Simulated scan of single mutants.
Amino acid sequence: MTMKYNKRLFTGYDKKLKSRADELRKNMTQQEWNLWYFYLRNHRLKWYRQRIIDRFIVDFYCHAAKLVIEIDGKQHYTDQGIVYDTERTQVLQGYGLKVLRYTNQQVVDNFQDVCWDIERNLQQ
């Protein structure tokens, strides 16, 4: 059964996730760290890292662009990870957000291409 969500921007969050989001912010993966410090932190648009939206913590979020960026490690490619990410993406899209996904390896091997792809999506 597919759930429908209002196309609105979610402004609240699950307070129970705050300590986990704080922990993730302090312990970013190397790929998240690189994307944050070498690109998003000083971007012309305001970005948030490890942001709570609904019942999820997204890696990066830009309110102005309604854009979410996820950097995926191996756990995202298990059967369970694929099902979870599919549901998560549907929920986020239900709020009118666009979700971009990159693998850890893409960030390592093609950092500039990842940044260009983000910029292309910001222009749309």
Rank of each mutant, 00 (worst) to 15 (best):
K4S: 07
K4H: 05
L9P: 01
F10W: 05
T11M: 08
K15F: 11
L17Y: 06
R20A: 12
A21M: 08
D22E: 14
E23K: 10
R25I: 12
R25T: 14
N34H: 09
N34Y: 05
N34F: 01
L35W: 01
F38L: 14
F38I: 01
R41C: 04
N42A: 10
H43I: 05
R44C: 01
R44N: 06
L45N: 11
K46Y: 13
K46V: 14
Y48D: 05
R49F: 10
R49A: 04
R49E: 01
Q50N: 05
R51M: 07
I52W: 04
F56E: 02
V58F: 09
L67I: 06
L67F: 02
V68F: 00
I69G: 03
I71V: 09
Q75C: 10
Q75P: 02
Q75D: 08
H76G: 06
T78A: 10
D79K: 15
I82S: 08
Y84M: 04
E87R: 13
R88Q: 04
T89R: 12
T89Y: 01
T89D: 09
V91Y: 00
Q93N: 13
G96T: 01
K98D: 01
V99W: 07
L100K: 14
T103G: 12
Q105G: 12
V107S: 07
Q112P: 11
V114A: 07
Q123Y: 06
Q124G: 12
